[in-house]
């Protein structure tokens, strides 16, 4: 028997986030034969997002639109998600494992007295139809399989680990507006939101990550890495050593403390490869390491290694890629 799966669809600047399309794939797998996948879009002006989303095959959708939902506020979002849950009565609610998903999912899990499996990177359906979720533990040093013992289920999906759902030819879904009742007390007030600079890719969603370590030597040393990331439409990351040395912000840190990334290509520049850092990036599909020290442990896991000076190689590589793109 199929399940009813509600996907809370994330969007940013009027566009669907990639993880939302990946979550729809996950939802389809969980729903199974005879199941239903319903999307829920929460925000201020969501018409554009809903219109885009309607091209992706699933079984129905709701929008909770309110100007107070333009900025993430857990109290208001929880009210909106709970309105969707009440309407859809899902067996499973799926979120992206993003800043918002990580924050809102446990609230809904608490409200529903439900279990939650966070940060899934895979799922397996056994012969008896039971579903096991695969998720990294110890930042990817190991993986566990988890099952739900009772419903409803709450799941958060790690970006970059499932294929995006395939876009259909035409708009297929009609979205139904849903009212929501904000909580009476305003105990949580967003005073200010400073948005990340335009065009900057979110680290966990980027398909290419150019990462710098102690070998980058200074904050200015990150500039050639940024230029390489730009030409590859990627994001810049860092090792703990670089963050601790003050070369960059902690929000860029990749590792067991910090973010775990699984891009298509990871380029480690001047990173020795401490075990904590490897935990955060070793599931990347292709790893390239550039380091002066030919003994650096990073070479032990890199698909391609270059022993040399990053300040010579990275700018040359950027120029070469630019030349070929124009060429």
């Amino acid at each position: 028997m199929g399940k009813t799966v509600l996907v809370i669809v994330e969007h940013k600047h009027g566009k669907l986030r990639q993880v939302a399309l990946e979550s729809l794939t996950v939802a389809g797998q969980i729903a199974g034969d005879g199941g239903r996948v319903i999307s829920g879009v929460i925000g201020d002006d969501v018409a554009q997002v809903a219109s885009e989303l309607s091209n992706y095959p699933h079984n129905g959708g709701y929008v909770v639109a309110d100007e107070r939902l333009g900025t993430y506020n857990p109290d208001l979002y929880a009210a909106a998600v709970n309105a969707l849950v009440e309407q859809v009565k899902p067996d499973v609610v799926v979120f992206g494992h993003t800043a918002i998903g990580r924050d809102i999912a446990p609230i809904i899990a608490a409200d529903l007295e439900a279990g939650q499996v966070s940060d899934i990177v895979g799922l397996v359906t056994d012969d008896d139809g039971s579903i096991s979720f695969i998720r990294p533990i110890y930042a990817g040093k190991a993986f566990e399989r988890r099952q739900f013992l009772t419903g409803p289920w709450i799941v958060t999906v790690r970006p970059n680990n499932f294929p995006a759902i395939t876009r259909g030819e035409t708009e297929q879904i009609e979205f139904t507006p849903l009212a929501f009742t904000p909580p009476a007390s305003e105990r949580f007030v967003v005073r200010e939101t400073v948005q990340a600079s335009d065009g900057k890719r979110d680290l966990t969603e980027a398909s290419v990550v150019v990462s710098g370590g102690r070998g980058v030597k200074s904050a200015d040393g990150f500039r050639p890495l940024e230029e390489l990331a730009n030409v590859l439409d990627g994001a810049v990351g860092a090792s703990r050593a670089a963050c601790d040395a003050g070369y960059c912000d902690y929000s860029l840190q990749i590792g067991q403390t910090g973010k775990v990334v699984t891009p298509d290509v990871y380029i480690a520049c001047g990173i020795s490869g401490a075990i904590q850092h490897l935990a955060g990036m070793s599931q990347s599909k292709l790893i390239i390491a550039i380091n002066k020290d030919e003994e650096a442990p990073i070479f032990g896991i890199a698909d391609y290694g270059v022993v040399g000076d990053l300040f010579e190689i990275v700018p040359k590589l950027t120029e070469e890629l630019k030349r070929r793109k124009i060429g």
Partner: peptide
């Protein structure tokens, strides 16, 4: 509400090619 059913280690990554 949930339980671990198994735990596994990721396949070890091999050193690739030095350019």
């Amino acid at each position: 509400r949930t339980a671990r059913t198994s735990v596994e280690l990721p396949p070890a990554r091999q050193a690739g090619q030095r350019l």
